[in-house]
Design a protein around this nucleic acid. Structure first.
Length: 414
RNA sequence: CGGGACGUGGUGUAGCGGCAACAUGCAUGCUUUGGGAGCAUGAGAUCACCGGUUCAAAUCCGGUCGUCCCGACCA
């Protein structure tokens, strides 16, 4: 991609109101743009990162047997009445058609996935079943917060599992936990698994919490045994496991998993016939990862004083080529020619590469943009590198410069 | 939904009864190029909206809408 063709320029100034540097960088780099309170647009670079996070999530979901589907966002009122959540789920957006029918805008999909599963689940032979989707969710939040942290419209991955018995549900629940940890690890995060309340979903749940001052949760963590529980359900100052003192931390939730058991299979009547011919309720689990919130937390935690410092797997691009001109026409022509050559070379090798071919933009400004946007490798083509027939390479997360040949560049490993 | 703050060129702000200003961004030209360059010229705002007070309102008063922050609520 040629940056001169992008037309979407970074902003020099940080919005004064933004207290979170991660959010300020996302806005300055034009990864996202606010449409109205709690509602955001995703611009080309931000969307690339979102798509990469989604790719990681999809790979890890497929690895534990998840099959991707895409459910409707517009839900009939009747289904939500069956589970009593038309009234009980406060944040449900309710819309009425001009002919009078009421719909809910999907904030979660138990009401849709359970009836859907009835088409396929009749016998114990039809279980287990794992279905997931990545979709825009709607929640009528009274107070959106922290940019993408809490919004009225957000991207979420939701996985639903269906089982014959608790043993199987428990086993899969642990499997999902591990898969989630892999997702976060690939995104450069190390969340803490925390016991939490289940809200309208179930009695208890587990949350994946990333320690950050910008988080809106407070969690208790035992330094001795690692036990962790959300403040909302914790009493006392001692660890219930080992009895040692616990400390409190502010944290941001990036995932939440629930054992729904028969809660929704009862209200929506999802049964199967077991080996003995007996009719039983299917047991369910649901597992969510807020994709857009994940981008927000990653930006907050993985950034420095200049901008975003993403892992290679989720960086918006892997390479950016910066020609460094001298002001002398002949030399500059050669610099342009060599830059174009390197750009073509990387493209030919299917590398994700940006060519910063903007004219009349100083090298300082270009350096700042690379740092702001978190592009993984910065390649400078200058008079100096030209004479050596090498390319200057700098990683975003390191101050060191390396001078590589074309071959070495193509075969760069982390 | 309670409490607080704030709405002024694209963006960020100053002005707080008397000619609407600054920075940045934008346009044109020249000079620049190892960390957000310099000079010159130029375009761009019915000061959120509605009403009131006044000789005179961006400025004071009332209302509406919107945004942000703190609570309550929540992925």
């Amino acid at each position: 991609m040629r940056l001169s063709e992008s037309k979407i320029k970074t902003k020099k100034r940080i919005e004064i109101e933004e207290e979170s540097k991660g959010l300020a960088y996302l806005l300055r780099a034009n990864f996202i743009e606010k449409l109205t309170s709690g509602v955001y647009n995703y611009l080309p670079f931000g969307l690339r990162v979102i798509r990469k996070i989604e790719k990681i999530v999809r790979e890890e979901m497929e690895r534990i047997g998840g099959q991707e589907i895409l459910m409707a966002a517009l839900h009939p009122k009747s289904l939500w009445e069956q589970t009593n959540r038309w009234e009980a789920f406060d944040a449900l957006f309710k819309v009425q058609s001009r002919y009078g029918q009421w719909y809910g805008l999907g904030p979660t999909h138990e009401e849709v996935v359970t009836p859907l599963a009835k088409n396929f689940i009749f016998s114990y032979r039809d279980l287990p079943l794992y279905l997931y989707q990545i979709q825009t969710k709607f929640r009528d939040e009274p107070r959106p917060k922290g940019g993408l942290m809490r919004t009225k419209e957000f991207l979420m991955k939701d996985l639903y599992s269906f089982h014959t018995d608790e043993k199987d549900l428990d086993w899969y629940y642990e499997k999902v936990k591990k898969a989630y940890l892999k997702v976060y690890k690939r995104c450069g995060l190390k969340p803490i698994i925390t016991e939490a309340s289940g809200g309208t979903f179930s009695k208890f749940s587990h949350e994946f919490q990333v320690l950050t001052e910008k988080g809106e949760d407070t969690i208790f963590l035992c330094a001795n045994c690692g036990f962790s529980r959300n403040k909302e359900i914790m009493e006392g100052k001692k660890c219930p496991v080992c009895g040692k003192k616990i400390e409190s931390y502010s944290a941001a939730e990036v995932g939440n998993i629930f054992k729904l058991k028969d809660k929704y299979s009862r209200s929506l009547d999802l049964k199967y016939i077991d080996q003995n011919g007996e009719e039983k309720y299917v047991l369910m689990g649901c597992y969510g990862i807020g994709i857009s919130r994940l981008l927000s937390v990653i930006s907050e935690v993985l950034s420095d004083s200049k901008g975003l410092v993403f892992p290679e797997e989720i960086a918006p691009y892997h390479y950016i080529i910066l020609p460094l001109y001298t002001g002398r026409r002949d030399t500059d022509k050669k610099i342009t020619k060599f830059s174009e050559e390197i750009y073509q070379l990387l493209k030919d090798h299917q590398k994700e590469v940006v060519f910063d071919d903007r004219k009349n933009v100083s090298i300082g400004e270009k350096f700042n943009d690379v740092d702001l946007m978190g592009i993984f490798y910065r390649l400078v083509i200058s008079e100096k590198t030209l004479s050596k027939k090498r390319i200057e390479v700098k990683k975003r997360n390191s101050p060191n410069l390396k001078y590589l040949s074309k071959n070495e560049l193509i075969n760069l490993k982390k």
